[in-house]
Amino acid sequence: MAGLIVAQAQEAPAENTGETMQSETTMEVVGDELHAAEEELHEATELHGDEHATGVFPPFDPATFGSQLLWLAITFAALYLLMSRVALPQIGGILADRRGRIDADLKAAEESRQKTDAAIAAYEEALASARAKAQGIASESRDAIAADLAAKRTRVEADLAAKVNAAEAGITQTKTAALAHVDEIAAETAQAVVSQLVGDVSAEAARSAVAKVKE
């Protein structure tokens, strides 16, 4: 396994440098044996003033593994501690605070809404009862006025009817009285007219004459 990786590692840079530099020396390297390849690569890299100190493809150079692992351990441990102890609780705290605040606000809003609803209901109830009371008062007073009016009207009507009856009775009496006097007046008038024309005549004769005419 380890040998395989090394072999790959040593072939890989040879191919890569071969492609880009297109140098004959490196092209030969690809076909060569492992040891020869290593030597040639050293030459090739030195030739081009390259900084491949070991001649191995850098990501597969085991010489750098120690340092990388050491610093990865240090930096990643530091990152983990900073994240888990400082940064994440801080951000999580902000989010939790906000969520709590939003929940509390929503709850308060809900309470206010319920209070408002109750107030509206109370108002509606008061309004309804007031309206009912007002209607009661209105109909009561209307009834009272109507009754009063009716009583007054009946009284006035009765009064008027009595007066009319009295007047009618008076008229009838006067009429009968007047009609009763008509005969007398006619007899007196007839006596006067006859006495002027033919001489004296008795009141009795005149009266009987009038009675005869009337019949």
Partner: peptide, 26 residues
């Protein structure tokens, strides 16, 4: 062979960028 390398420098830079940003911003 242990050394502080360019790789280590960028690991430190990575951690510094993350930590400083997250801690300072919040």
């Amino acid at each position: 062979h242990l050394a502080f390398t360019n790789s280590a420098l960028f690991m430190v830079a990575t951690v510094a960028v993350i930590s400083l940003y997250l801690i300072l911003s919040s």
